[in-house]
Simulated scan of single mutants.
Amino acid sequence: MSLLFEEIDSQASPLGEISLRRRRIPALGDRDIYEVKLGEEFLMSSMFVEAEEALSTLGLAQVQGDRLEVVVGGLGLGYTAVAALKDERISELLVVEALETVIGWHKGELVPLGKTLNADSRNRYVHGSFFDLATAPATGFDPDRAGKQFDAILLDIDHSPTEYLNASNASFYTTENLALMAQQLKPNGVFAMWSQNLPEEHFEALLKTVFETVESHVVSFYNPFQSEESTNSVYVCVKGEE
Rank of each mutant, 00 (worst) to 15 (best):
S2N: 14
L3R: 14
E7P: 11
Q11D: 08
S13E: 09
S13I: 08
S13W: 08
I18W: 07
S19E: 07
R21A: 14
R23I: 12
R24Q: 10
L28E: 08
G29T: 06
D30N: 14
I33R: 09
K37S: 12
K37V: 14
E40G: 15
E41C: 12
F42K: 13
M44S: 04
S45I: 03
M47T: 07
F48E: 05
V49R: 12
V49Y: 08
E50T: 05
E52I: 04
E52N: 12
S56V: 00
S56Q: 00
T57W: 01
L60Q: 05
A61P: 07
Q62G: 04
Q62T: 09
Q64A: 15
G65N: 10
R67N: 15
E69M: 06
V71N: 04
V71P: 01
G73A: 09
G74Y: 05
G76V: 04
L77E: 05
G78L: 02
Y79E: 11
Y79L: 07
T80V: 02
T80C: 01
A81L: 00
A81H: 02
R89E: 03
E92H: 12
L93C: 09
V95P: 01
V96D: 03
G104E: 05
W105I: 00
L110K: 14
V111M: 06
V111F: 10
V111D: 03
